[in-house]
Amino acid sequence: MSLSRLVARPMLASVFVVGAVNALKNSGALAAKAEPVTDTLVGTIKKAVPQAPLPDDPQTLVRINAAVQIAAAAALATGRGPRTSAAVLAASLAPTTLAGHRFWEADDQATKTQQQLHFFKNLSVLGGLLIAAGDTEGRPGVAWRARRVAKDARREARHLAVSARQEAKLVKAKVA
């Protein structure tokens, strides 16, 4: 692992640990802010997957999100499943941002500016997480490996076809 990954991953994860601990401590207040988003999200998920055991209570959802963020941030910081943990953090950041930083609903300009700043900060962090989720650390990714296997299979098929034609000619020449 490169030095930049060794340092950058814990730095990226730290914002989630701090935010998630705060969410656990203040889950009641945050649940009130999150309710419009959780109601929409829970409704959508229950329509898509009716048997999903998803709680309706916004406070419980805030706590679950915080626990997921702590676990994924710890995994990212320690380099255990960094691509998966970055993807999980990215998925959890979207509803968190939409629930917590609704600058378009702010009444006064100072609050609007502050919420807008946090919204775009989270958007920037999301970009970093997307980069981390796609980082193969210099090793070939799944898409490259799939293309390589397909290319090798085509080459082998051509080779087998040429060999089969040559053998057929030899057999024909021996028979005649």
Rank of each mutant, 00 (worst) to 15 (best):
F119M: 09
T111A: 12
A91C: 12
A143N: 01
A66R: 00
R139A: 14
T113R: 07
V37A: 09
F103Y: 13
R63M: 13
K33I: 03
T84S: 04
D108R: 08
V49L: 14
Q69E: 15
L41P: 06
L54D: 05
R80F: 14
R80E: 02
P140D: 11
K112A: 03
Q116H: 12
A150L: 15
Q51C: 04
L30N: 09
F119A: 08
A31F: 00
E105I: 00
A32M: 14
V149W: 02
S85N: 10
H118Q: 14
V42N: 04
V37R: 10
D56T: 07
A146Q: 13
P82R: 11
A94F: 12
A52C: 04
R63W: 09
P50N: 06
G134H: 09
E105V: 00
L61T: 04
R145Y: 04
V149I: 07
F119V: 10
D152L: 15
Q116D: 03
N65P: 03
A150V: 15
L30W: 09
K47C: 01
K121P: 04
V37S: 09
W144H: 07
A31R: 06
A29N: 07
I131T: 12
T60E: 14
P50W: 04
T60V: 13
Q69A: 10
Q69I: 01
A72G: 06
T97F: 05
I45L: 13
P53S: 07
R83F: 05
A71N: 05
F103G: 00
G128D: 05
L89F: 13
A90W: 15
R83S: 02
I70A: 08
Q116V: 01
R154Q: 14
L89Y: 12
G81K: 01
R80G: 01
K33C: 07
T136A: 05
T40Q: 09
A48S: 09
I45P: 03
A73T: 06
L54Y: 05
T84H: 00
D107W: 01
N65Y: 04
A71K: 08
I70Q: 02
P58I: 08
A106L: 00
V42D: 06
A86W: 02
H101E: 02
N122F: 11
T78P: 06
T97C: 08
A86K: 02
Q51S: 15
D152R: 15
K121E: 09
V49T: 10
V88E: 05
K47Q: 14
Q69M: 09
V88R: 02
A74Q: 03
R155Y: 11
L30Q: 15
A73V: 05
P53K: 10
K33G: 10
P95V: 06
G134N: 12
